[in-house]
């Protein structure tokens, strides 16, 4: 029994780790200057960082109030609302992109309204941010709602009894106590946004310098210069690993 468990665990570790090591080993590191000089990779990486950071910021802005609403209020349809706002997390990403296109595209209900204001979203950097937020915000909402449910309201009552206003209580008690949930949720949200592919390509397209983030660039390079695709992939892997290490709970 013990031998079986150990063997299965070893197989699991091999399956999970070997592709990563393979990518690093197979990448033609000597071609790095060439890849960089070409301009495609640095632009894609830069855009990836910009889009993912913007997506995390947007997710925090809309996700924190939603998490608060879901954790701290009892109302009809709360369960339904929770299911709906976390659904994009489990949706196939390309379906998420198509859904965004249907709502915000030129013929969609929101798209027409925006067009009336002179705003066209699809195939812009903003669309890439929206696509990444759409699929990654639920991760943040889930983490924050979990954190809020774990947080005993007595702490807030104690703060109020000591004279703290609601804003002071939020800033000096609630947010610090939510820190682990906030950091964990943010890291997962960021990683998901950084890796976004399907929703982005469907809603924002694959335009160099505008919506072509690193995963999209890798996909394109794979068809022309697989060696450079490996290299860019390895760079993205290093980035994701960096996030992971920086955001791990201490």
């Amino acid at each position: 029994m013990r031998v079986l468990v150990t063997a299965a665990a070893a197989l699991g570790a091999v399956l999970l780790i070997v592709p990563l090591l393979g990518l690093v080993a197979e990448s033609p590191w000597s071609e790095l200057p060439e890849l960089w000089a070409d301009g495609v990779a640095p632009r894609a990486l830069g855009l990836s960082i910009l889009v993912s950071v913007a997506a995390v910021t947007l997710s925090l802005g809309i996700g924190a109030p939603l998490a608060w609403l879901l954790a701290r209020n009892r109302f009809r349809g709360r369960g339904l609302l929770r299911s709906l706002v976390t659904l994009p997390m489990v949706l196939p990403p390309v379906v998420a992109g198509v859904a965004l296109l249907a709502a915000l595209g030129p013929t969609g209900p929101l798209g027409r309204a925006l067009a009336g204001l002179g705003v066209e979203l699809p195939f812009t950097t903003a669309a890439a941010v929206l696509a990444a937020s759409f699929v990654s915000a639920p991760l943040l909402i889930t983490a924050l709602e979990g954190g809020l449910n774990q947080l005993d309201r007595r702490y807030e009552q104690v703060a109020a009894a000591l004279g703290a206003s609601r804003a002071q209580t939020l800033l000096r008690v609630v947010l610090p106590l939510l820190r682990p949930a906030l950091l964990g949720g943010r890291a997962r949200c960021w990683a998901r946004a950084l890796g976004e592919f399907g929703a982005t390509i469907a809603f924002a397209g694959n335009l160099r310098g505008v919506t072509q983030t690193a995963p999209l660039a890798i996909y394109e390079l794979l068809q022309t210069r697989p060696d450079q695709a490996f290299l860019l992939g390895a760079l993205l892997l290093a980035g994701a690993f960096g996030i992971f290490v920086a955001a791990r709970p201490r």
Binding site: R154, Q157, V158, A159, A160, G163, S165, P176, L177
Partner: peptide, 20 residues
């Protein structure tokens, strides 16, 4: 009068010190 403006000092059951 809301809790933060009452002239009360409270020691709740189980100290509830802020852990952070």
């Amino acid at each position: 009068v809301p809790p933060q403006r009452r002239p009360l000092g409270v020691m709740f059951q189980g100290s509830w010190l802020f852990p952070h």
